[in-house]
Design a binder for these strands. Structure first.
Lengths: 142, 142
DNA sequence: CAGTATCCGTGTTGATACTG
DNA sequence: CAGTATCAACACGGATACTG
């Protein structure tokens, strides 16, 4: 497992940025949100996250996400030595703290979505007007 | 400028996830942090972010980050029609709200870094022990 | 100064097949 | 069931050159 350049740089200069990225990663946010409700088994979590995320998490990505969060001490992995295998995932106390703060941020983006959408429409309209003006200008000069 | 598949999917099913990604993007976090202090000009911001981030932001990436945040209504762009050009960037009220919440999250990761590091050491030690056990086992069976 | 346009290396993602 | 291994696609970040 070689560490990527980006990660190596970030780790050296700003270690906590990495944790932030883990918390806010594509699937990290969703995993934390689900685990705030209750513990989950692997496949169960996969289905829940996929449903909520609107797209399937590959097993690989879920595994990767969970391992990263576990390594950071945010998620607890409880593997029971039975057949068929059973593994339960839950938040640690640390993870619960983090998840709560992520939730606050996510909630905010959700609440302010209307304003964001409005801003985007204004921005896009201005852009279009600007681009059209340039289009006309370039035709005139040819 | 074609929109990527990932972005298109996220936009359709979970619009506010995108805003979250913008806020917590590689350079977004740093730009917001700097702009919480005071308004900045483009190159000035480039230097400030590069210093704080430990690595240079390319003009392209800074431009892209700023445009995204501007489009979302989080950053205000004030271009003065003078020669040489002068453009000032600042947070909007909406942007200030978001930046504040990002700061809370970032601060938390910073404060808890010790616990995270400790958890990582435990995790890595366990992994090493496990991998070594497997190594020995596979040699024995050959 | 404040960008835009273009190209290219690289890492991350995800589908598929396989294992204990 | 709960993963690991492998590989292809693709999107991202960055270097460079150019513009108003």
């Amino acid at each position: 497992m070689t560490v990527s350049k980006r990660v190596a740089d970030a780790e050296a200069l700003c270690p906590h940025r990495l944790v932030l990225e883990h918390l806010t990663s594509r699937w990290g946010v969703l995993v934390l949100a689900e685990l705030m409700e209750r513990p989950y088994r692997f496949s169960e979590l996969r289905r829940a996250v996929s449903r909520f995320g609107g797209r399937n998490v590959s097993e690989k990505m879920l595994t990767q996400t969970l391992q990263t969060l576990e390594r950071d001490g945010l998620v607890h992995r409880d593997a029971k030595p039975v057949i068929p295998p059973r593994v339960d995932y839950s938040l640690t106390d640390l993870g619960r703290e983090g998840a709560e703060r992520v939730r606050v941020l996510a909630q905010w983006t959700h609440d302010r979505m209307d304003e964001v959408e409005k801003a985007r429409q204004v921005y896009d309209a201005k852009r279009r007007a600007y681009d059209e003006a340039r289009e006309i200008q370039s035709r005139a000069s040819s």
